[in-house]
């Protein structure tokens, strides 16, 4: 069981950040859905739910998602169903159940950089930026590659640029963690291939993305899918072996490319 010495609900992000960095064991509380599964020794728990960081908003050329937005809202929000080919909404649908997704938040999912995340893979294939209180605004890819430092994730911004995206996943059973997931997107001639649950966290297949972007002939999606599978690293865990994931990467990426090619 986790322990918790103090519980605070700051009124401003500044205050929240001050408290967060004032003690080594101080932690931002996300939705608390995963809290009980660990035995974390928390000093001061900083609840950021009063900071008005929740909700999905249309911000002109961007869609803004507050860190405290529940995954269920991501799933059902009309803006996220209507944009990004519904992939952002779809990506959270298989996470346990409604009553879990009503607690778990976007901020916790992204900030924790979970390897098994479905959401991260899709966000990575889109033009997503994260806004952190201290580190400021940066592309999601850069954030994922940066070392974990104490900060408060405030918002996500996804560019509403008409990028087409396809999200694919493979699960052993419906509400399990994915064996593998993939998202492929295309804006004009620029392609992005992202693969997650490898089981390491989602990453962009740079070579495959570039090759797709530079090619005028995409008759053979399998070629690019194989390229993605060969450039990424896969590991073995309870849900699948590296060998199987490598093979599945070819299939999921191929299917995603084909689906994107069909959205004209």
């Amino acid at each position: 069981m986790f322990t918790l010495k103090e519980f605070v609900q700051p009124k401003s992000v500044e205050e929240a950040y001050e408290i967060l960095i004032s003690g080594r064991n101080n932690t931002v509380l996300g939705g608390t859905a995963f809290l009980r599964m660990g035995s974390k020794k928390i000093g001061t728990a900083v609840d950021i739910s009063k900071l008005e960081l929740n909700g999905v908003k249309d911000a002109g050329s961007l869609i803004e998602i507050g860190a405290c937005t529940a995954l269920r809202e991501v799933e059902t929000h009309p803006l996220l169903i209507d944009h990004f080919d519904g992939a952002v909404s779809d990506s959270v649908k298989n996470i346990i159940g409604v009553q879990f997704r009503n607690i778990a938040t976007v901020g916790a999912s992204v900030f924790s950089k979970y390897g098994f995340s479905d959401l991260l893979t899709v966000l990575l294939a889109l033009d997503t930026e994260v806004e952190l209180f201290k580190a400021g605004r940066l592309p999601l890819d850069a954030f994922l590659k940066s070392p974990c430092e104490k900060d408060i994730l405030m918002r996500l911004f996804i560019k509403k640029n008409g990028r087409n995206v396809s999200y694919q996943y493979l699960r052993n059973s419906a509400s399990d963690y994915p064996v593998l997931n993939a998202a492929v997107s295309k804006l004009g001639s620029q392609w992005t291939v992202a693969v997650g649950a490898r089981p390491q966290r989602a990453a962009i297949a740079m070579k495959a993305s570039e090759a797709l972007s530079n090619s005028s002939n995409r008759e053979n999606p399998e070629y690019y899918a194989n390229m993605a599978a060969d450039e990424l690293r896969f590991g073995t865990n309870a849900r699948g072996t590296a060998q199987y994931r490598h093979a599945m990467c070819k299939v999921l990426v191929k299917r995603a490319i084909m689906e994107v090619l069909q959205c004209r």
Partner: peptide, 18 residues
């Protein structure tokens, strides 16, 4: 499962202080 503000949530994963 209980409702918090009319929404179904897992009460085992919801910090009482919240």
């Amino acid at each position: 499962t209980v409702w918090v503000e009319e929404k179904p949530v897992l009460s085992c994963a919801f910090l009482s202080l919240k």
